[in-house]
């Protein structure tokens, strides 16, 4: 089974001037599969699927709440990876999971579970570069792209090493803090994206604290794209998949009208 090539897919779209839009959906909450389909139909370039964890230290209140709802509803990594097989949306799927989920399953076993579920990539936010060796090796063997996070606090000499180990795209952390909507885009968001663009040709996608269409446009003046997490999950919890579709369409339109795509 061959899953979509995350990096190839994003690069080819990026190279036409198209800005990458990656909505995040917490797996296991009511309506999540429909939300994934709706987001793709509304113009998502890839989807990030959160595997809920009991202790999500990188997440703010909205995604914490969604994770807890999913867990209370009986969601497990196995159930989510089973259900996601039903989804055939034509864009790559990437999971976001905390490291204990990987560690507990076993590196090679988890990587092959992802591959068999049609997942193209993985983001493990509490697995920094120094600790990532075993997982990355297993993920490489299973052709699962490990997306590395780069943080605003990283010194200049660290960023090239993070980018070198990244596959798929580089996740440029938008601010000092956890996921959640903010009134304005932090200055760190474009600053870090710029530092990353200077050292890597891989797609640079800003996530954490990109909270609406205008902030997405602002981030994309420097970056290749954005992850939309809490803003999507809040709409899913409040208004279901239709609200997700409406929001993702709005962000898509804003990006497309601001950044002209060359015909390739």
């Amino acid at each position: 089974m061959t899953n979509p090539d995350l990096e190839g897919h994003l690069r080819s779209r990026r190279d036409t001037g198209h800005k990458l839009l990656v909505p995040y959906v917490t797996g296991g909450v009511n309506g999540w599969l429909d939300a994934v389909r709706a987001a793709v139909a509304s113009g998502a370039d890839a989807i990030e699927i959160g595997i809920p964890f009991s202790d999500p230290v990188m997440d703010g209140p909205v995604i914490q709440q969604a994770s807890q709802l999913a867990l209370d509803g009986g969601a497990t990594p196995v159930s989510i990876l089973h259900e996601v097989r039903e989804v055939d949306v034509g864009v790559p799927l990437v999971v976001m999971c905390y490291y204990n989920t990987v560690h507990h399953a076993g590196h090679a076993r988890f990587a092959s579970q992802l591959r068999d579920a049609g997942i193209s990539g993985a983001i493990v936010p509490d697995l920094p570069l120094e600790e990532s060796g075993e997982w990355c090796a297993a993920a490489d063997d299973a052709s699962v792209a490990t997306v590395m996070l780069a943080a605003p606090t990283a010194p200049d000499d660290r960023l090239p090493r993070v980018c070198a180990r990244a596959r798929g795209f580089v996740y440029s952390v938008g601010l000092l803090g956890v996921t959640g909507e903010r009134d304005s885009l932090a200055a760190t968001a474009t600053r870090l994206a710029g530092r990353l663009k200077a050292v890597t040709d891989r797609p640079v996608v800003v996530g954490v604290g990109v909270s609406n269409a205008s902030q997405a446009v602002e981030a994309c003046r420097v970056a290749d794209g954005v992850v939309q997490g809490a803003s999507v999950v809040r709409r899913l919890l409040e208004g279901g998949p239709d609200a997700v579709a409406e929001y993702v369409s709005e962000v898509r339109r804003a990006l497309d009208s601001e950044f002209v795509t060359s015909v390739s």
Binding site: M58, P128, E131, L149, A150, A151, T153, V173
Partner: peptide, 12 residues
């Protein structure tokens, strides 16, 4: 042991 924290905290 080890140091399993988000990238943001590594320099700290």
């Amino acid at each position: 042991g080890g140091r399993f924290v988000p990238e943001t905290l590594i320099p700290a």
